[in-house]
Design a binder for these strands. Structure first.
Lengths: 226, 226
DNA sequence: CGAATAGTGTCTATTAGACATTATTTT
DNA sequence: AAAATAATGTCTAATAGACACTATTCG
């Protein structure tokens, strides 16, 4: 029987937000080796005694100032190829975070710089480690979960209008949706949206305001084009 | 800035199979501390230089004799609570494995005994570590993925009949499905099932044989009852 | 009033679910 | 022939998608 090998454990975050009518991801420019000056997903080492959700929430707070109550964070997947980090055996538990209306990011401890980048501009940049793959997995998870979950609300401030929610779907999926059918769909599923009774007027008829309902799931789902 | 903390990394496996008209999970009785003599999910330490999929495949082969080509294995989730293992910081990357028609299990290196157990009998047993939670997550993943993926075929030998596939769905979901509607559904989605042209006769009219098709996904999905 | 946006209604094609019927084998 | 299982067909209710229409605001 072989001996167990100790590894270093990190959490990395795919932090997505809808900003400037675009799906954007939070990237940091690394301040230290390896991959110094390269763009990377925010993240860092799991600390002594710290659970994985705690580590993810802490890193998110350091990079964005968001506290976990206002953000949706879920575990994405774990990446552990022996050669993924030149420092040695470093395994990362990637998380997906969806935030609403973030201000400008602030640089964290080992991040010289942080920036929101439209996801379709990322393929041009070389990300550190296997972060390009992790980002792709995170985006696909977000797209897939919009179909059957109330995840879209996590990308919006609360309360929100049906039109704002629809815009989130359109931006994340990159396809346009019929406003009338979308409205009928999301308001028709019991418990998915909670009407606040309030309205907000921008231009035209005032829009009813909603918060995410208790259902959490959208059944039957909204389907994207295949 | 705090120091990274080294952890030991394991892979654990939720190995599911349909045996004796029942959804069963492979459990091992632990031969060593901690939790000696307790039932647990099969698994073990990730070895030096070993990637996560390799470690999962190796552990699976040790416990069942299955090589990875014949089995569906996918990463499930990672569990890293600081107190989950009394030995210290041990983080496990759980995997879901679906196998067809396994023979009797053989005990592995640190497993004194191995057994297939119907999943509905598991709540009676006390599983080691947080394995009860991991098992629950694995079962739910399998149930959910049957809806939209060709995962059911992984629980069957190849080729198989539509009736055999339907039985898998019924057993995993614990609900009965209309044979005629199920047949129409799975044979109607292009690329989901590949007819072999062969038939197999048990009792009654010979059944056409199929293999899993190239599509991999079932769109639109089959939905379970909610 | 006209423009703009929100929200409802209506029609049609597709799909799901219930269930009848036909087809092909074994005994 | 009878029993058993496979496979197809038919009907109906529900849903998705296209699109007309009404509602409520601002300028």
């Amino acid at each position: 029987m072989s001996e167990p090998v100790p590894v270093l454990l990190t959490v990395d975050l795919v932090v997505l937000s809808v900003r400037a009518d675009d799906l954007q991801v939070l990237l940091v420019r690394r301040g230290i080796e390896p991959y110094a000056d390269a763009w990377a997903l925010p993240g860092g080492f799991v600390l002594d005694g710290e659970d994985l959700p705690d580590a993810a929430a802490r890193e998110l707070a350091e990079e964005t100032g968001f506290d976990r109550a206002r953000v949706h964070v879920e575990q994405l997947a774990t990446y552990g190829a022996a050669t993924r980090d030149p420092r040695g055996r470093v395994v990362t538990v990637a998380h997906l975070a969806l935030v609403s209306d973030p201000g400008e990011p602030r640089g964290g401890s080992d991040a010289a710089e942080a920036a929101w980048v439209p996801v379709r501009e990322v393929p041009g940049r070389e990300l550190a480690f296997d972060h390009e793959r992790i980002l792709a997995d995170g985006i696909e998870r977000a797209r897939a979960k919009l179909e059957y979950s109330a995840l879209g609300a996590a990308l919006l401030g609360s309360p929100f209008t049906v039109a704002e929610l629809r815009r989130v779907y359109e931006i994340v999926w990159g396809e346009s949706l019929d406003p009338r059918n979308f409205h009928r769909k999301v308001t028709g599923v019991a418990g998915f949206l909670e009407p606040t009774g309030e309205t907000r007027t921008e231009r035209g008829r005032p829009a009813a305001l909603f918060t995410a309902g208790p259902a959490g799931v959208l059944h039957p789902p909204i389907t994207r084009q295949r």
